[in-house]
Write a protein that binds this DNA or RNA. Sequence first.
DNA 1: CAGGGCACCT
DNA 2: AGGTGCC
Length: 717
Amino acid sequence: MDKSEDEVEDDETEWKNTFVGSAPLSPAAPSGQTPAHRVILHFDLDCFYAQVEMIRNPALREVPLGIQQKYIIVTCNYVARELGVTKLMSVTDAKEKCPQLVLVKGEDLTHYREISYKVTELLMSYCPLVERLGFDENFMDITKMVEQRLAQTPESKNFSFKGHVYNHINVEASDHPRLALGSHIAAELRDAIHSKLGLTGCAGIATNKLLAKLVSGTFKPNQQTTLLLENVSDIMGCLSGLRKVPGVGHQTAKRLQALGLVSVKDLQLFPLNELVSEFGGPSAQRLKNLALGIDDSPVTPTGAPQSLSDEDSFKKMSSTKDVLEKIQELLSNLVERMHKDGRQPQTFRLTIRRYSATNKWFSRESRQCPIPGHVGQRIISGSSDDAVVQLVPLAMKLFHKMVDSSAAFHLTLINVCFSNLQTRGAAASGKGSITSFFTHNTSPRKTQSFSSHSQNGSSQSSDHHCTDHQFSTSTMIPQHTSQKTLTTKSPSISEAALCGCKREQSPVVAVEGPPLQKVSCSTARLDFDERDNTLTHRLPPNVDPEVFKLLPEDIQMELLSPAYVNSPASTSFSSAAVADVPHITKNKSPQSCTDSLNVKPIKETVSKLNPPDRETTVNPQRPEGTSSFQGENVMEEGRLSFPRSSDCEFPGNVDPKVFSELPLDVQMELMSEWKQRKPVLKTSSSRKPGISSTTKDRKAAGKGRQANNLLKYFKPS
DNA sequence: CAGGGCACCT
DNA sequence: AGGTGCC
């Protein structure tokens, strides 16, 4: 075997000599040290999005299925692959190759994200050292589990490998007891993922993340492969190019190519010092190590996400009106997600991508700003709609820092992002929540020093317990997760999660009837002539009704809504209650809309396989959104009588004539800001914002307490 | 490259 | 704030 490979492998050098193959009797690491070599697993779910959709609608299993985002097939099931469809193929190409291809829209990642975290949770219930990579991959450091089993394994035991061993037909497993045990653990975990979540996937078993990942795809659907140290150079040498090395992206590959390096071997043999001069010390060393199959990076537990974002891309977006509308839509979804997460974002970021014929692929720009505390509070307290109203002007401000809206612009993407997520104090947030599992696991990711501790396989492992379910297969209940997930591989799993993480409903609940709110709202303020909305009076003077008419209804409502209510005690809720009821109900419907759209192609193509009632089963109502929202809306509406009108006027010092001559988008923004600011200002006496003032007011008004006093009553603990 | 996310580094 | 990489 290639000794040098072994030694460099764990280049935490010191003990390079000690490890060798005779692991079982290595008393070397009874306590306190990084094991001489780790056992790392890499899990990679098969065509993940397609699997999720096939769980949601089992009829899809029998047909060629593609998951479509915009005009791209991001992934497809194996039936489709046999017919020539590949990942990242354009829809037209795919349809050409495979006319019977069934397409499901995959732009809404909600279900994928939920299932994805369930997989991670499940793995974490066996051993906390789980690192996510995207939605469908997980690394796992099972060194301790392996050591535990090793300690309990009689000397006489015959080792064996589960699954494949890279480049080997038969191996003497006793020479590689840790990896052999690792392969058994991997098989058990894959089986758990399958039995509890209904998902299949591949696993790689190796001594570091790089190798585990590289080897996991050797045998593709639903299989696993172990890589022995003696075959490291094989697998590295087999890579078709540097780009195949995880960690070497496009840019890096290009720079390497500029140095004349194209193959992995080229990089292996390239003098380090020359590499250093091009990439700098750490990067150079890392690159060279990667080429050699060396990777000492730890498996860093991922925990809860550090940012939540929502984005959409499009061919062309060139009006501020559209931007405003899109931002509002994105924010609605994002705030909802943030609310479920339970943490409070401190930072908001807006990212755009501009169209440009040359250099089309990159060039994203972003601006970020702090989120005022009271807005963040509203997100977590459940006044999501209120939060959106207050966030939209923030977003537009950031937008204008990047885009001069008086000139032409052409955007192809908008992204909204919450970051700097702060865990709330006592956080009795939804217990079954997917993220609540992670939220109390607040460890900052960097401070993982997982190398030190002593453990014995026995009862008590204080810090990073690895729960080995091997010897208690009958009691396979993961300790962290509640049992909710265990029952089914049916579509209802996600439901269970949703129910579990559903927030406490407001004391007042149940009352059905979105129409109620909508009616009240429109009777209160708006005079539309039915659906074709010739809206009549009550428009602010100097706002062109023709232009106004073109706006989507929710924007119209928003601009006109009497967000400013009087009753001082309830001001903090007023804008939420009134302004947002319309666009909440409106925002919910697109979801169900997408859902039914998703089903339609199936119906056309495979109606025989797919009894009509299937669809309702597959696309159950979201238990959550509507009902909980209505609860709050109802509650709020109950509390505050609707305002008499008189609201939608300009701040006193704004000259209507001047206002009318501003560009439409500026008008809209100003109105949006006034509307939002007004209640706040009201509490601090009736100030009149100047037309140009924006930020300082908010900051000054920021400490408008008294909202919280009320909030805490509605938000138990 | 696409698409809708994420993370890390600088 | 941007760049890069990963899925």
